[in-house]
Design a binder for these strands. Sequence first.
DNA 1: CTCCCGATAT
DNA 2: ATATCAGGAG
Length: 217
Amino acid sequence: MATIPPVPDNTENFNHVFKLLQGEYPDAEPMLHFKNPLELLIATILSAQCTDKQVNKVTQVLFKKYSSVEDFANADINELGKDIYTTGFYHQKAKHIIGSAQLILTEFGGKVPDTMEELLKLPGVGRKTANIVLARGYNIIEGIAVDTHVTRLSQKLGLTQNSDPGKIELDLMELAKKEDLENLSMTLILHGRNVCIARRPKCGVCVVNKLCPSSEV
DNA sequence: CTCCCGATAT
DNA sequence: ATATCAGGAG
């Protein structure tokens, strides 16, 4: 014990950090391509441990072949696996997509659910995926999508002491203003991709390096 | 905790 | 060669 740095973490500090980051990424748009909640759900399931660019490449073809919940529910797992092969975890993802589509048909009247509770019942859907579907598919901002970037930046910026994504989400919810919830996740992700890169963070060009406990400059 | 897993950057 | 990418299930 006693090795955890005492981070002077407060709401004011967070708002300062976020304001600076928002200035860097004014139009923090989602990068996944989709035309409806179903496509968003599928694309987000596919995005696990995969770049959005690769997901878009796959879905561009995929959504022409499978265009309805029924198409996915009745898909052959091996064939779907080949269709999404390059996103990685292809067998698991194919199983999850088919399972989700079947549950949507049998339990949710063929419509992608618009509540956290129902979305979490879908196989392959956790809080991160559910938060994205709610926010981008239905304009319902309930929580914050905590992915690997959000986890890393929250820890490095001293916004949380936790490593569990669910706990980090709660920590960020307490710090952020309601009007910031919508863009918080995407802003942190963009900064994580462009500047605070996992392997070699560019602290020298980071707009919040003065406020960052982990800054290397 | 481990496993699932290909594509990409370094 | 290795770490990492809009994670979730067992």
